[in-house]
């Protein structure tokens, strides 16, 4: 995975992380109420989604590498 691909995946992951946080504040929190629990949950979900995206990008890059070789 070249630096450029890593940077790209990282940037998109940050956008996804922030997107989940904002969505959570706007949509989920009015439902389940504020508090430490909801904040921790929110961070976990956001990190999870971001991490999943980076992993997806890593797999795709490796698959592309094999096909080229």
């Amino acid at each position: 995975m070249t630096f450029s691909q890593a940077w790209d995946a990282g940037f998109m992951a940050v956008l996804i992380f922030l997107g989940t946080v904002f969505a959570w504040l706007g949509l989920v929190e009015p439902v389940i109420g504020r508090g430490l629990l909801s904040t921790v949950l929110m961070t976990l979900v956001a990190l999870g989604l971001g991490g999943a995206f980076v992993a997806h990008r890593k797999r795709r890059a490796r698959k592309l590498l094999e096909s080229v070789r």
Partner: peptide, 11 residues
């Protein structure tokens, strides 16, 4: 930004 531009591996 969008998909990676440098073709992987080709360098």
């Amino acid at each position: 930004m969008a998909a990676t531009y440098a073709t992987a591996g080709a360098g």
